[in-house]
């Protein structure tokens, strides 16, 4: 039975891919690839696709709960924000793929306990200056701060980020307003 029955996930997840074709709009460049709801189907997909570090500059992978589009405008993301991890060029070779896989395993494995409900998805951006991995949550208000902080601490723990290093949480509304420059951190851990 262990080999015959797939292991169900708490949520169904959808993988998205973004490739920057300047002739098309941002939304047209965002493509839904596949959804899965078991551990085996996650691995079938993950084992089949390029690692994030092999993507061309300007490309993204996103993994979001089914029904949530990987954009600020989605109902589930509008009031939310993201924990952001920036990586330098050296880290693309050494850490990027490990970090991205770890974030995926946290999400599909529901590693954030009761606060897993607040997780929307995660995005990895491959860029010339700095790659970014971000975990998006649905509610950045102070009433949800405990959950946001819990998620941030769990990310640090699972990614083995040094205690002295900090990661920041940015509200999407701030990121939208500051397009092109750095949004402020509402929380840090």
């Amino acid at each position: 039975p262990e080999l015959l029955i797939k292991h169900p996930l708490q949520n169904t997840w959808t993988l998205w891919y973004f490739e920057n074709d300047k002739k098309k709009s941002w939304e047209e460049n965002l493509r839904e690839i596949a959804s899965f709801s078991t551990v085996e189907d996650f691995w079938s997909l993950y084992n089949h696709i390029k690692c994030a570090s092999e993507l061309r500059i300007g490309c993204d992978y996103s993994l979001f709960k089914k029904g949530i589009r990987p954009m600020w405008e989605d109902e589930s993301n509008k009031q939310g924000g993201r924990w952001l991890i920036s990586l330098d060029r050296k880290q693309r070779e050494t850490e990027l793929d490990n970090f991205w896989l770890e974030i995926l395993l946290c999400m599909i494995g529901e590693a954030f306990d009761d606060h897993s409900e607040d997780v929307c998805g995660a995005v990895v951006n491959i860029r010339s200056k700095a790659d970014k991995i971000a975990l998006w949550t649905s509610d950045s208000s102070s009433s949800k701060s405990e959950g946001v902080i819990y998620i941030g601490k769990k990310i640090k723990e699972r990614l083995k980020i040094a205690p002295k290093a900090t990661i920041g949480y940015q509200i999407h509304k701030d990121t939208m307003e500051k397009a092109g420059s750095v949004a402020k951190n509402t929380y840090t851990v």
């Binding site: 169900p8 708490q10 691995w43 599909i108 494995g109 529901e110 306990d113 699972r158």
Partner: peptide, 18 residues
């Protein structure tokens, strides 16, 4: 309610499942 939680090691062990 209940939630389906998987430890990291469990997920990794299933990576090469047939």
């Amino acid at each position: 309610g209940t939630r389906i939680v998987y430890e990291r090691s469990t997920l990794l062990n299933l990576r090469n499942s047939p």
